[in-house]
Nucleic acid binder design. Structure first.
Length: 896
RNA sequence: GCCCGCUUAGCUCAGUGGUAGAGCGCGCGCUUCACACGCGCGAAGUCGCAGGUUCGAGUCCUGCAGCGGGCACCA
């Protein structure tokens, strides 16, 4: 068989994915065990306009590891893919496209525009979802969903109507965040705050019937045109006599009162605050408290209205600002202007400065929906957040401090609000237009032009994708889902809302666990962003290092924020290559061998290193399974890496080599060959969730592979490692004594290698080795291992005795259990160098012994520490004493 | 202002009260018949600082410093 020396991932990746998909391996129906437990995940639907970035690759890897692991464990497993219609960004994309044709959406009209968006979506959208095939994501494509699908749209209408009927959704006027560019309302979660260097303007307002002036400070002087009061703190003595007084609002001819409100901080600015109820959230609240008039001086395009006065009408808000300042200066009413840094609110999409506007919108009373999830997290700590700190608290805090959610968006792309108005303006909120007509008793209805916030449909994702509001088989089977894997910035926006809808409509939490991934920064610790251009493209990593290497590095990131380190992928590409070559060795020596054989018979009859590798393998399987189930992917990967490289490659293959590479066919040779193949096959299964492609590629090549290797639930399927049973780690095969004994062998070989290296023995040169082991059992182990010791330590001969009485010209090393080893080096050894080497060793032991002795001399320790801990220390001290005395003897033998 | 996280080898990071770890990098030596994307050997850490709890602290508690994040406010 021709097997290249280097693993080339590309070809294998596409081939295996296509086969898995075509064979239906990803669908839960592949599992024929009707009593199997269920494991389900819904993907956080990526934005239909987006492209795959490292954050997605990270989340997808973790979801795929969990999915593949549980599938191999025999769960009825579903990972449901899909995407989000992303209202604003999609609409912006298409409007941009139209602009290049010299058109606006208004030229097309609503219907044609929406058709155009669908066309755009088919042509360019869903890039991330397509790229998931490249990642190896084992999602069930037959259940792929899109938030604008008919089914999901129906779920949205149902949600809306029910909430409306229960009074949770209302239509009314409120002060909302408005984007003057995108011409739509935004929820507080769609805006971003940004520090900005600006100015604080101090304006004087004359007191009516007095020469006195009240000074107010503002960052937005243009809003003074809409002031309807000035507020002071009721306890502020400076102004107490002015409460109830009337001010002459400059430039407007309007008279406004001075009011008292606890909200005002006397320490800040002048202690007097201008109040603009129509254009500031705090002022809006204050306006309601004091029943102040609301004067709208800024329009949806951020231009001044007629109410701002003839001189200002039509001016942009910033032009108006300058003009107001000029006028105040002219009137001698500008007290001063100081530099001032404050934060400014911008549209999360287009970065335009938000204008708080008084506007009629649809709102949802989230606080009521939050009650059930809040109770659940407080009483039962459900869902379980991983890591619990700090996310459980972040989630709880948010649920406790909710405000009404602005649902309506003045866009064309999205779920149209299911509200119709008759000619008198009466509203009918119904599931269909027919119902509205019936309710209104007329056909002359107009539907509300607005659409819903994209997150409204996202909030329903775990239920709507499974068929809600219908009572479907999928919903009954896969809800609640097992885990939600997502980034932390979406906890408020999405996670908590899914919990709200899940509790409301299903009476159950949407997911058992919530795993929050870390953030990947660039190598300088900067957040990756399109604007900075410092993003690392996962596809580029796939091309350069292979998907498997990229995935296993990502899985290890878990929930820790980390800097991207390309060297790390390189080392896992090397790991993939190591796997490839270990398999290559097994396959090149596989004649006469078969997977699953070689470990027949009583375990006691196996060779020591065979008992050892089975112990290591099963221990690894236990650790890895527990680690994956507890979302400790780093631990799982490290364990697998060291099992495969250190235990399997460095030692097991090497210890087996003499048997495996025997030139003459024999039952012993074939059994040894079967054993390495069997261990390899188990290792491939263990690695598969992390490295799906290379494991499948190699697994398919193993001799003796058949459906018999599959988990019983998949016995009917074509052979594939992804449906093999995940090794669980059999306790009876864990053999601490064999591990200890092989450890002794490893120590012996390592000490000889160390001597060779320090004495500058050429690698090609062999040396005799004398082993002294007073312990009979240990001596037997070394004696049985002579051929392996000879091979791995490059020894010309290995003498195993009860003690060492070798030539004076030897290099010595001490081993555990009172054993020692000598390498006779007549003519090669430099006595001074050897003495120095031994003294250093002795010194190290002495320091360790001192520490142990001090601890054991401490009465408190001996009395209070657990007995086994004390015993352990005594053992260690005894071992050190033995080694020290052996070293002493060696030193004496070297004495002049 | 309130809350939270991080600080461990040159770098990126693990670490579960009981002998400080990995990968990369570094030094020395190797075309040893699976693999130079490799093999062998080695050097390298007052675990941010100061207290405390404990027989015992990188790990638990308190304070401090530096870095980072979230929330609120910002007239």
């Amino acid at each position: 068989m021709e097997i290249p020396k280097t693993y080339d991932p590309k070809e294998a990746e596409a081939r295996h994915y296509a086969r898995w998909e075509a064979q239906g391996f990803f669908a839960p129906e592949i599992n024929r065990d009707t009593s199997a437990p269920v494991y389900s995940i819904v993907i956080p639907p990526p934005n239909v306009t987006g492209a795959l970035h490292m954050g997605h690759a990270l989340q997808h890897t973790i979801m795929d590891v969990l999915t593949r692991y549980h599938r191999m464990r025999g769960y009825r497993t579903l990972w449901l893919p899909g995407e989000d219609h992303a209202g604003i960004s999609t609409q912006i994309q298409v409007e941009r496209q139209l602009k290049r044709e010299g058109l606006t959406r208004h030229d097309l009209g609503r219907e044609k525009f929406v058709a155009r968006v669908w066309q755009w979506k088919e042509q360019y959208g869903g890039e991330i979802i397509r790229q998931m095939r490249r990642e190896g994501a084992s999602v069930d494509w037959s259940r792929e969903r899109f938030t604008m699908d008919e089914g999901l749209s129906r779920a949205v209408r149902e949600f809306f109507v029910r909430c409306y009927e229960e009074g949770l959704i209302y239509h009314g006027e409120g002060l909302i965040s408005w984007c003057p560019k995108d011409q739509t309302a935004l929820s507080d979660l769609e805006v971003e705050k940004e520090a900005q260097a600006g100015k604080l303007y101090y304006l004087q307002y004359p007191v009516k019937g007095s020469a006195r002036r009240v000074i107010v400070a503002t960052t937005r002087p243009e809003t003074m045109l809409g002031d309807t009061a000035v507020a002071v703190n009721p306890n502020d003595e400076r102004y107490s006599d002015l409460i109830g007084a009337t001010l002459e609002l400059p430039l407007t001819g309007r008279e406004i009162p001075v009011i008292a409100d606890e909200f005002v901080d006397p320490e800040f600015g002048t202690g007097a605050v201008k109040v603009t109820p129509a254009h500031d959230p705090n002022d809006y609240q204050m306006g309601l408290r004091h029943k102040l008039p609301q004067v709208k001086v800024i329009d949806p395009y951020a231009r001044m209205t007629e109410a701002a006065g003839a001189e200002f009408t039509g001016l942009d808000r910033y032009e108006a600002r300058e003009k107001v300042i000029e006028k105040f200066e002219g009137l001698g009413l500008l007290e001063k202007v100081v530099d001032y840094e404050f934060s400014i609110t911008k549209c999360g999409r287009c970065r335009t400065v938000i204008e708080p506007l008084l506007s009629t919108q649809w709102f949802l009373k989230q606080a009521e929906l939050a009650r059930a999830p809040l109770e659940l997290i407080k009483e039962k700590h459900e869902p379980r957040f991983v890591p619990e700190v700090p996310y459980e608290k972040v989630y709880t805090n948010w649920l406790e401090n909710l405000y009404d959610w602005t649902l309506s968006r003045q866009l064309w792309w999205g779920h149209r609000i299911p509200a119709w108005y008759d000619e008198e303006g009466r509203v009918y909120v119904t599931r269909t237009e027919e119902e509205a007509r019936a309710a209104a008793g007329t056909d002359k209805l107009t539907q509300d032009p607005d659409v819903l916030d994209t997150w409204f449909s996202a909030a329903l994702w775990p239920v709507s994708t499974l068929g809600w509001p219908d009572d479907t088989e999928d919903l009954r089977t896969f809800y609640p889902t097992s885990v939600l894997v997502t980034a932390r910035d979406i906890i408020f926006l999405w996670v908590s809302r899914m919990m709200m809808t899940g509790m409301k409509f299903m009476g159950q939490k949407a997911f058992a666990d919530v795993f929050i991934t870390g953030t990947i920064f660039d190598k300088h610790g900067q957040r990756m962003s399109k604007m900075k251009g410092n993003g690392v493209d996962p596809l580029e990593m796939f091309d350069r290092y292979g998907v498997d290497a990229t995935r296993i590095v990502l899985a290890q990131i878990e929930s820790t924020d980390t800097r991207w380190n390309e060297k790390q992928i390189e080392s896992y590409r090397n790991f993939a290559n190591k796997i490839w070559n270990a398999a290559r060795f097994c396959l090149l020596n596989s004649e006469g061998a078969s997977v699953g054989r070689g470990f027949e018979g009583d375990r006691a009859s196996w060779a020591l290193h065979d008992r050892w590798i089975m112990s290591r393998l099963n221990r690894t399987a236990q650790t890895v399974s527990a680690a994956i189930e507890n979302y400790r992917f780093h631990e799982a990967v490290q364990t697998l890496y060291h099992f495969f490289w250190d235990d399997f490659c460095d030692w097991y293959i090497e210890l087996s080599k003499t048997d495996v590479t025997a030139t003459e066919p024999s039952p012993a040779r074939d059994a040894a060959r079967s054993r390495v193949l069997t261990v390899l096959e188990q290792a491939l299964r263990l690695l598969h969730p992390f490295m799906p492609f290379i494991t499948e590629e190699l697994w398919q090549r193993l001799p003796g592979i058949s459906a018999a290797q599959l988990h019983p639930a998949y016995a009917h399927a074509e052979p594939t490692v992804m449906l093999a049973a995940y090794p669980q780690g059999e306790q009876s095969l864990i053999d601490a004594r064999a591990e200890q004994e092989v450890q002794a062998l490893i120590e012996l070989i390592s000490r000889v290698r160390n001597i060779r290296s320090e004495m500058n023995i050429k690698p090609g040169e062999t040396v005799p080795v004398i082993v002294g082991a007073p312990d009979e059992n240990l001596r037997a182990i070394f004696a049985a291992g002579v051929p392996q010791i000879a091979r791995l330590a490059r020894a010309s001969e290995v003498l195993v005795q009860s003690g060492i009485n070798g030539p004076r010209a030897s290099a010595h090393a001490v081993l555990a259990g009172g054993a020692e080893v000598a390498v006779p080096l007549e003519g090669l050894i430099d006595f001074a160098v050897e003495r120095e080497r031994l003294r250093k060793e002795q010194e190290k032991l002495r320091r360790e012994a001192e520490k142990l002795e001090a601890q054991l001399a401490n009465q408190n320790f001996v009395e209070r520490a657990p007995a086994e801990k004390v015993e352990e220390l005594r053992q260690r001290l005894a071992d050190i004493a033995q080694r020290t005395s052996a070293l002493q003897q060696s030193l004496e033998a070297l004495a002049e």
